[in-house]
């Protein structure tokens, strides 16, 4: 088992996110650390800026202000900044919506997770194939391996997206509403799996969701974006400290 000591994997200082100063979604500066071995739930109303926040943390969107660092190394604006490929070996964002290719099998898609490790001609080694097999098994997708991506239900596709991220073997996993299309048993399994991945592989996981119940039960901390401000507390104390009051308004 990997040592899941509280090493800081991701850190943001005075972070403001959005699409320019005028369109800052999280306008109040955020200071946050994501540690190895923990799962943090990200809650907030639709349009509160959860997806934009996640995109900024994984380097797809430049911050409006402040910094994001992975293992004390900045993501942006530094001579020491992460290269795109090295970054992709360390952090990834899993989204359940977006483009879906109608000519790709499940295995081909999961194999894309090995892209950061591939050479110039995008070949896959035996080791890569082994990692893909492992991801397929972990998400119970072996029987879907040869199916076309577009033939799957939304729920099945959600698991495939997660398997692709698992195959990417990152340390920081960011997920944007991974259980949006999952039924209750699958949702529970997913959160249990995230907990397992965090503990066993020493990963830091930040998952945006609308499932307050799972956030309280399976996550170590809860982070809430409300009216442009971010608050974060231990999951067990979040309700008592009023972090979830907005859900009952």
């Amino acid at each position: 088992m990997i040592d899941s000591s509280k090493a800081v994997l991701l850190k943001c200082n005075d972070l403001v996110v959005g699409y320019g100063h005028e369109k800052a979604l999280v306008a109040s500066p955020v200071n946050f650390e994501l540690n190895a071995g923990e799962v943090v739930a990200l809650l907030g109303e639709n349009g509160s800026g959860k997806s934009t926040f996640l995109k900024t943390l994984c380097g797809l969107l430049a911050p409006v202000a402040g910094t994001v660092a992975l293992c004390d190394r900045p993501l942006w604006n530094s001579t020491d900044a992460w290269s795109a490929r090295e970054r992709a070996k360390f952090v990834t964002l899993v989204r359940m919506s977006g483009v879906s290719c109608d000519r790709m099998t499940v295995r081909e898609f999961i194999s894309l997770g090995r892209t950061p490790y591939a050479g110039l001609f995008d070949g896959r080694s035996k080791e890569d194939e082994g990692v893909v097999d492992e991801a397929l098994a972990l998400l119970e997708l072996e029987k879907f391996s040869g199916r076309w991506l577009t033939e799957l239900s939304d729920g099945e596709r959600s698991r495939v997206y997660l398997a692709q991220a698992v195959a990417q073997q990152v340390k920081v996993l960011l997920l944007d509403e991974p259980n949006a299309f999952l039924d209750i048993p699958r949702s529970r399994k997913l959160f249990a799996l995230l907990q397992k991945l965090a503990k066993e592989r020493g990963m830091g996981i930040l998952v945006s969701t609308h499932s307050v119940e799972y956030a309280e039960k399976y996550c170590d901390r809860i982070m809430v974006i409300e009216k442009g401000c971010v608050r974060c507390e231990m999951a067990k104390e979040a309700r008592a400290k009023g972090l979830l009051d907005w859900t009952e308004e």
Binding site: G98, F121, D122
Partner: peptide
């Protein structure tokens, strides 16, 4: 080749895989 294989799922997806 790396870009072509990843770009089938969109530019953001390709960037997330470290593709320039």
């Amino acid at each position: 080749m790396r870009y072509l294989n990843a770009a089938r799922m969109g530019d953001d997806f390709a960037k997330n895989l470290g593709v320039n």
